[in-house]
C-alpha cells in the first residue's frame, strides 16, 4: 500500500483547454461570418431543387408558394399533390402535372381558394394597420423545382393571378 501511494502523483493533471479555445474561436468567427437573418427560408429536398441564377436582389417577406415535384405548399401548409404524366417526346420519361380533376380550365381550384384566403387576410390586416407600408401588394414568392415543366408553373401563375397575386418573385440560389 505504501508503495502504491508513493507512486501516485501529488496533483491530478489539469486539462489543457488552450488548444480547444483556439478551435472554438476560429469556429466562432466562421459562424459569425455566415450569420444571417433572412426572412425567407428554404427546405431543400429531393423534390425541391431551386435553380441557380446570377440575380442579386435580396428576397423579402411575402406569401410563400412552394411548387415541388410532388406537391404544392402555401406558407408551409400542403395544398395538393401533383401527379405524373408520360412524356410524349421522351418515351419512358415522366413529367409532373396538376391532376385534371383539380383544375377548372387553367385555374387550380384548391390553390385558388387558399391564395384567396391569404389575400383577404392580408387585406384585412392592411386595413387595420392603415399604414402604407403594410398595404396589400399581391406579392408572392415562388419556389419552384428546376425540373418542373412550364405547364405546371403557368397554371400556378395563372391561379395566383386570379387570386389577386400579380407580382411574382422567383426564388433562386445566388451564384458568385
Amino acid at each position: 500500500m505504501a508503495l502504491k501511494k508513493a507512486r501516485r502523483p501529488k496533483d491530478s493533471a489539469g486539462l489543457n483547454i488552450t488548444s480547444m479555445m483556439d478551435m472554438m474561436t476560429i469556429i466562432l468567427v466562421f459562424l459569425l461570418k455566415s450569420y444571417s437573418t433572412s426572412d425567407v427560408s428554404v427546405a431543400p429536398s429531393d423534390m425541391l431543387q431551386l435553380p441557380s441564377s446570377s440575380a442579386q436582389k435580396p428576397p423579402e417577406l411575402a406569401v410563400n408558394l412552394v411548387v415541388a415535384r410532388n406537391q404544392i405548399v402555401v406558407d408551409g401548409v400542403p395544398v395538393l399533390n401533383l401527379t405524373t404524366i408520360p412524356d410524349e417526346d421522351n418515351p419512358g420519361q415522366y413529367l409532373a402535372a396538376v391532376p385534371e380533376d383539380e383544375k377548372k380550365g387553367q385555374s387550380i381550384d384548391k390553390l385558388y381558394q387558399r391564395l384567396l384566403d391569404k389575400a383577404e387576410a392580408a387585406k384585412a390586416l392592411a386595413e387595420q394597420s392603415g399604414s402604407e407600408e403594410h398595404a396589400f401588394k399581391g406579392r408572392v414568392l415562388i419556389q419552384c423545382d428546376k425540373e418542373l415543366p412550364f405547364a405546371v408553373l403557368r397554371e400556378v401563375m395563372y391561379t395566383a393571378g386570379q387570386a389577386q397575386f400579380g407580382e411574382f418573385k422567383f426564388v433562386v440560389y445566388k451564384t458568385e
Binding site: S34, Y35, V40, P58, K174
Partner: peptide
C-alpha cells in the same frame, strides 16, 4: 442562424 446557401429573387409580373 447560419446560412450556407444565399438566396435571391427574380421579379416578374403578369402580362396585364
Amino acid at each position: 442562424a447560419a446560412e450556407f446557401v444565399s438566396l435571391a429573387v427574380i421579379d416578374s409580373t403578369l402580362p396585364a
